[in-house]
């Protein structure tokens, strides 16, 4: 139950309406960044306030919320945001991907395939895919309006010319519905293919930068590449030290002070379920 005197889901109704209108326009124009007012939240900008505002505008009493930070349900940011919504909205929370109706994420898409009826909410630090290439927002708006993405292709080409391959490992730019180049948020490039024609709804919130954007289900999301240099997402050539998975995205961890390394699944729910044979721990 909601045990605080805050309004349901913290935000006032006027703010929710504005975010809701932005979300609907975002779904109607896949990949286009819609400006929104972006309120103060009870944590600093840059800590997921965009994702939290989207979650607060979307969440209802019957939702089951999962929050992950780099794939993990048990890190500080994930635990705090989960507790926040269980206090201000009284919703049920879970760590199991398939039980959740709403998944707020910082920088991963779960390994367990998403299904219709699920909504992903991404915390986005930098919504503008062209920001390292063109500092002026007035100019990037114009480039998006003209679908002029030559700068991005030159950047990828220069990567190949200098390093022999495209060196972006995360926040790898995608073309959405054949029109807008979009920042998928700093998810690993490994996760990009999960956005392509996904059955779930994907909502992106950038609180500090005051932008909302969205990818509807079954929408083309293509990672930028060249014919002779196709998209090749990077992943550690190893198996998870805990569950043995070779198909999931792995984190590299140091386990002692002599530099011994191990790889473990970044998605803690996936890893735990594999170890317990699908049963809840």
């Amino acid at each position: 139950m909601n045990n605080t005197s805050y309004t349901f889901a913290y935000l006032d109704e006027q703010t929710k309406r504005e975010i809701r209108r932005a979300l609907l326009k975002g779904l109607a124009i896949p990949g286009h960044q819609v400006p929104f007012a972006s309120r103060e939240m009870p944590l600093a900008r840059g800590w997921g306030t965009g994702g939290m505002q989207v979650t607060a505008a979307v969440i209802g009493r019957n939702d089951v919320l999962k929050v992950i930070d780099q794939g993990a349900d048990d890190t500080t940011n994930a635990v705090s945001i989960r507790q926040f919504f269980s206090r201000v909205a009284g919703v049920r929370t879970t760590t199991r991907t398939e039980e959740a109706t709403l998944i707020q994420t910082r920088h991963r898409i779960p390994e367990t395939p998403l299904r219709p009826g699920q909504i992903m909410v991404y915390q986005v630090p930098q919504p503008e895919p062209l920001w390292r290439l063109e500092p002026s927002r007035a100019e990037t708006r114009r480039l998006h309006a003209l679908a002029e993405y030559g700068l991005m292709h030159v950047k990828l080409y220069e990567d190949i010319a200098q390093h022999g391959r495209i060196t972006l490992a995360y926040d790898y730019p995608v073309l959405v519905h054949g029109r807008y180049v979009m920042a998928p948020s700093p998810i690993p490039a490994f996760d990009n293919p999960k956005l392509h024609r996904s059955p779930a709804i994907h909502l992106f919130g950038a609180g500090r930068e005051k932008r909302i954007y969205a990818v509807p289900p079954y929408t083309d999301v293509i990672s930028l590449a060249f014919e002779d240099h196709p998209f090749r997402p990077w992943k550690a050539e190893a198996a998870c030290a805990l569950c043995g998975s070779t198909e999931s995205y792995l984190d590299e961890i140091l386990i002692d002070d002599r530099g011994t390394r191990r790889y473990i699944c970044s998605d803690t729910d996936w890893c735990e379920r594999r170890r317990t044979g699908g049963k809840t721990a």
Binding site: T7, F8, A9, E13, R20, A28, V58, I201, P217
Partner: peptide, 19 residues
């Protein structure tokens, strides 16, 4: 119920707009 009915209506519209 202004808060929860508006939320339910929005979720219906979100689902409609997404599909």
């Amino acid at each position: 119920d202004p808060i929860h009915d508006a939320q339910a209506a929005f979720r219906a519209l979100l689902e409609a707009m997404a599909r």
